[in-house]
Write a protein that binds this DNA or RNA. Structure first.
Length: 483
RNA sequence: GGUCCCAUCGACUAGGGGUUAGGUCGUCACUCUUUCACAGUGAAAACACGGGUUCGAAUCCCGUUGGGACCGCCA
């Protein structure tokens, strides 16, 4: 089983259907981590053999997203490599060659049923309560019949001739030994009637030709491994190591799906989850370093250093947004202020905030970042900084502003401002101390009315910070209203 | 339904024959802060069940139950 001498070559092989699924990201990440950890190559191969599902720009989008997340490829459609082409649609003649070989060797055969006929067959099987699978009827066609139909150019497919009454066994790095009786394996279509290969053929041929050493992919593929093994054996090829990673689940434990929330990586990025935290979080879904390690935060480099397939979990993992939020908030709180500011700009602009004063934006961020689970929550926290009139959160707050003691505080404060050039968090505190001494008003009586007058709310970021950001003009104006 | 896979707190997980079953998120309480949040401290919270094996089983084996995936001329 061990093939340490062989260079590690892994591949991420998505079909370009338009967006990158969170589960795909994790598979890609695991491939990348494994490749880097073992000094091997990470390959991107585009499985676009389904002409009906092509989406314009999907590949470019995928590569762009992966790159920005830090998942890099050593070979692929963009950077090329010695094993190309990396689009399956450009390798059609290659697959054809091997399907011909399989036919010649008696491991595959032509079949001429139409999709309608097959539907009919499946319906019957369902009615009879039998398992739906191809009944292998075209195996019985005589050589003459086949030649005749081919000559007539009847639409046809090429199917795998599964050896009957046998058993296929393989070892999965994550799941252990898996075995399946061949009698329940479908005579899978290898070449479709449009001449394109199915996933099963293309995948085996490419993995072999591209010298893939480890197949790391989602668990949904385990049941088709036996088909692939039959093909490997028929062609006399060595079978790569297999590692089927568990699924990422909805909170009801079903396969993570659109219906129950966001599944596209872009959705999360758009909402303002940081790339670092998304990667960190996803990596820990189904993998952990073990050995009593209690660290939760990892950089990509640390992940690369610690990642091994053996430590990948065998069971599925629920995608828990709550924990993602916590982790993202943590990243936001500790992020480089300048970079955070830059990343946050779009969210300020989104709510029509004037972003010409970057220094101010930075200050605001430092005041509100503790509240942010994700960047798209910025708008709701900057209202107090963007508006010129204060609207009270509720009417009950008004009494704090109308009281005599509040008026006294407001008056004293605005008076003090006149002798000051600029307010900052520090001198605001000392000024307030002075106000307290002068008026004899302290504690809640002192702070609460001010907060409410300035923000319209009983709670929020620290008042000195707010004062510095507001500046003396704005504060005076807001307070005068109540004097 | 058939086949395959899986099973430790609500969630992510550590542990893998002898542990007070550990950590993180979430929840709750307290402390701190003249606000909320942050931070800190603490609490509640799990080995699905039944049989073996063993002096001893969460840990190994078998079964049951439960959950999931797959059963396309999709990948």
């Amino acid at each position: 089983m061990e093939n340490n001498k062989k260079e590690v070559r892994v591949r991420f092989a998505p079909s370009p259907t338009g967006y990158v699924h969170i589960g795909s990201l994790r598979t890609a990440l695991f491939n990348y981590l494994f490749a880097r950890h073992s000094g091997g190559k990470n390959i991107l191969r585009i499985e676009d053999t389904d002409q009906t599902r092509k989406v314009e720009g999907a590949v470019e989008n995928l590569i762009k997203n992966m790159k920005s997340l830090g998942v890099e490829f050593d070979e692929g459609p963009v950077q090329g490599g010695n094993y190309g082409p990396y689009y399956q649609s450009e390798r059609i003649d290659i697959y054809r060659r091997y399907s011909d070989e399989l036919i010649a060797k008696g491991f595959a055969y032509y079949a001429f049923e139409t999709p309608d006929e097959l539907d009919e067959m499946r319906k019957m099987q369902q009615l009879e309560g039998k398992q739906t699978m191809y009944d292998r009827r075209a195996r019985d066609l005589s050589e003459d019949e086949v030649q005749d139909k081919l000559k007539k150019r009847l639409p046809h497919v090429i199917r795998l001739k599964v050896p009957l009454n046998d058993e296929v066994r393989f070892n999965d790095v994550i799941k252990g030994t898996i075995k399946i009786e061949t009698n329940i394996i479908d005579d899978q279509i290898l070449i479709k009637s449009d001449g394109f290969p199915t996933y099963h053929l293309a995948n085996v041929v490419d993995d072999h030709l591209m010298q893939i050493s480890h197949i790391i992919r989602g668990e949904e593929w385990v049941t088709s491994v036996p088909k692939h093994i039959i093909i490997y054996n028929a062609l006399g090829w060595e079978i790569p190591e297999m590692a089927h990673v568990p699924l990422i689940l909805n909170s009801d434990k079903s396969k993570l799906s659109k219906r129950q929330g966001d599944v596209a990586v872009e959705d999360y990025l758009k909402k303002g989850y940081l790339k670092e935290s998304l990667i960190n979080f996803i990596a820990l879904l189904g993998w952990n370093p073990g050995e009593g390690e209690e660290q939760e935060f990892y950089t990509m480099d640390e992940l690369i250093r610690k990642f091994t397939l053996e430590k990948v979990q065998a069971s599925g993992a629920v995608f828990n947004v709550e924990k993602l939020n916590w982790m993202n908030n943590s990243y936001i709180k500790n992020y480089d202020p300048d970079k955070l500011t830059e990343m946050s700009l779009p969210y300020f602009e989104q709510s029509g905030f004037d972003t010409s004063d970057i220094a101010k934006i930075k200050k605001i961020l430092s005041a509100i970042r503790v509240y942010l689970n994700k960047l798209d929550e910025i708008p709701q926290h900057i209202k107090i900084f963007s508006r010129n009139e204060v609207e009270l959160e509720n009417e009950n707050l008004k009494e704090f502003l109308d009281s005599d003691s509040s008026k006294k505080v407001f008056k004293a404060l605005t008076e003090k401002f006149k002798s000051i050039n600029e307010i900052n968090a520090e001198n605001y505190k000392t000024i307030l101390k002075d106000v307290q001494n002068e008026t004899g008003i302290k504690g809640k009586q002192l702070f609460k009315p001010l907060r409410i007058a300035l923000t319209g709310s009983e709670n929020g970021p620290e008042l000195p910070l707010i004062a510095e950001i507001f500046g003396k003009e704005k504060i005076s104006k807001l307070l005068e209203k109540w004097i």
